[in-house]
Amino acid sequence: MKRPSWWTGFIIVFFLLVSFLLAKSLVVQIKTTHLRTEAQFYAQTIAVLNSGDTVEQLETKNGWIKVKSSKGAVGWVHSSAVKPKRFALLSMAGDLQTKASSDEVALAGKGFNKQVEGEYKVRNPGLNFALVDKILKIHISPSEIKDFLKKGQLGEFRGEQ
């Protein structure tokens, strides 16, 4: 039996590297977003993605990105819900002993959060955050939006009678 040649190994490594170079990783930057069957906000949901989840970009269309989730689900997310995942293999400062990515550093450095809001509330007891939470509960479902657009001949329903 003929042993695999140098060429076989070389071709495998080459294709692995090329696939890695072509793949673009994105990270979810909002609290939750939906992986949808089509590039539309009222399209059916395939999966829910949470802040920090990583997805792989497959293609783009009119501000939407077709992605593959870490669990293998494929669908569309809007580009404003994700950002490119940044990582640093190089250290310009010469410190190559470390492993943390720049994303991790940015995350660790986040400042204005629930803890700060809590302290701010203590200092400003007159502010009504309960009312803000009430506003956040106003919810228009995707099917209601679709119906609203359709009846008003808006969005993709423009020109329909």
Partner: peptide, 22 residues
């Protein structure tokens, strides 16, 4: 491969200053 990582960092305008942490 190295350039890909560099470009990704550069797009955030931070490449020249990025160092990693222990």
């Amino acid at each position: 491969l190295v350039m890909k990582c560099s470009v990704m960092e550069e797009s955030a305008g931070v490449f020249q200053k990025v160092s990693q942490i222990v």
